[in-house]
Amino acid sequence: MRGKAALLGIALMVLCAAVIGNVTAETPEESGDKLIHVSGTGKVTTTPDQAIIVLAVEIENADAKVAQQQNAQKMDAVTNALKNAGIPAKDIRTAGYNIMPVTEIDDKPLATSRVKFYRVTNNLEITLHDVDRAGEIVDIAVANGANRVDRLMLTLSDEKQQQFRSEALTAAVKQARSDADAVVAALGKTVVDVKEVNVGSNYIPMAYDNRYLAATDMAKGASAPTPVEIGEIDVTATVSIAYIIA
């Protein structure tokens, strides 16, 4: 037993020595490189190629069931009209649905609240790949029963986001290198290599057109189409780079 215990002790000591040896070997040494840290920002200006419209049908009635049915009928008409206008079903989705009791308080010594009516709201989100039709689509929705336009966002499709972000990153790296070269040259040194690069987080540009947040009966009767100015948006990207100098 003593012999086995001795062998076990020796084995444990060898194992511990091996572990300690590995830890010591993996401890990084301090770098003697001389570094310059710079950052760069790149920007690409383009026009949106995608619109996201969020609209709603809102109905109020003293009977919750009646309000729900009326809302369903109007939203069905809106959805069918959008599909008939060429919007694919995959680009139309329900963004929210709510039934809320609206109460009022009696003017009595012991005030009590009672339900005045029920408000049913159904929100619809439309993704439009032809931004020039944004105003037309708003008009179609309002003409067929939508009575709220909550949001109209102009942005870029996933493909365009990737394309222009790559261009912005390239511009950011060029700016960073230009700044590094200028500073290093003034010091009588030169850039010899790259030590580290950090890329900033992704930014998805969006432009908001909030002029038409409320669709009214006046809008339904208007003969002029709803104007939507496309404008431009900026895609930006940032990088931080550590260069080795000599």
Results as ranks from 00 to 15, higher is better:
Lys4Asp: 10
Lys4Ala: 11
Leu7Trp: 06
Leu8His: 11
Ile10Phe: 12
Ala11Glu: 10
Leu12Trp: 14
Val14Ile: 14
Val19Ser: 07
Val19Phe: 12
Ile20Met: 11
Ala25Glu: 03
Thr27Phe: 09
Glu30Gly: 15
Ser31Gly: 15
Lys34Cys: 05
Ile36Val: 10
Ile36Phe: 10
Ser39Pro: 07
Lys43His: 10
Thr46Pro: 04
Thr47Asn: 09
Thr47Leu: 02
Pro48Leu: 04
Ala51Trp: 00
Ala51Arg: 05
Ile52Gly: 04
Ile53Tyr: 00
Val54Ala: 05
Ala56Arg: 08
Val57Ile: 10
Glu58Arg: 06
Glu58Met: 02
Ile59Tyr: 04
Glu60Tyr: 07
Asn61Asp: 15
Ala64Val: 12
Ala64Tyr: 03
Lys65Cys: 02
Val66Met: 07
Gln68Val: 06
Asn71Gln: 11
Ala72Met: 00
Lys74Asn: 03
Asp76Thr: 11
Val78Ile: 10
Thr79Asp: 07
Lys83Ala: 09
Ala85Leu: 04
Ala85Pro: 03
Ala85Tyr: 06
Gly86Thr: 05
Ala89Leu: 12
Ala89Thr: 14
Ala89Asn: 15
Lys90Met: 08
Ile92Pro: 04
Ile92Lys: 02
Asn98Ala: 04
Ile99Val: 14
Pro101Tyr: 06
Pro101Val: 14
Val102Tyr: 00
Asp106Pro: 03
Lys108Ser: 15
Leu110Ser: 13
Leu110Ala: 09
Ala111Asn: 11
Thr112Lys: 10
Val115Ile: 15
Tyr118Lys: 11
Tyr118Trp: 15
Arg119Tyr: 12
Val120Pro: 03
Asn122Leu: 09
Asn123Ala: 01
Ile126Thr: 04
Ile126Ala: 06
Ile126Ser: 01
Asp130Lys: 09
Ala134Lys: 08
Ala134Asn: 08
Gly135Lys: 09
Gly135Ala: 09
Glu136Trp: 08
Glu136Ala: 11
Ile137Val: 11
Asp139Ile: 04
Ala141Leu: 05
Ala141Asp: 04
Val142Met: 03
Val149Ile: 15
Val149Ala: 05
Arg151Thr: 04
Arg151Phe: 02
Leu152Ala: 07
Leu154Gln: 01
Leu154Tyr: 02
Ser157Ala: 10
Lys160Glu: 01
Phe164Ala: 00
Arg165Trp: 00
Arg165Gln: 07
Leu169Ala: 03
Thr170Pro: 03
Val173Trp: 03
Val173Ile: 06
Gln175Phe: 09
Arg177Ala: 04
Ser178Lys: 10
Ser178Gly: 07
Ala180Asp: 06
Asp181Cys: 05
Val183Phe: 09
Val184Gln: 10
Gly188Phe: 14
Lys189Tyr: 14
Thr190Tyr: 05
Val192Gln: 09
Lys195Met: 05
Val197Glu: 15
Val197Asp: 12
Pro205Gln: 01
Pro205Leu: 01
Pro205Thr: 07
Met206Ile: 02
Met206Pro: 01
Ala207Tyr: 10
Tyr208Met: 12
Tyr208Gly: 00
Tyr212Phe: 10
Tyr212Gln: 07
Leu213Ser: 11
Ala214Ser: 12
Asp217Pro: 02
Met218Val: 10
Ala219Asp: 15
Gly221Ile: 05
Ala224Asn: 07
Pro225Asn: 03
Pro227Cys: 06
Glu229Ala: 14
Glu229Met: 13
Gly231His: 11
Glu232His: 13
Ile233Asn: 03
Asp234Asn: 08
Val235Cys: 00
Ala237His: 02
Ala237Lys: 00
Thr238Asp: 09
Val239Ile: 12
Ser240Glu: 11
Ser240Ile: 06
Ala242Ser: 12
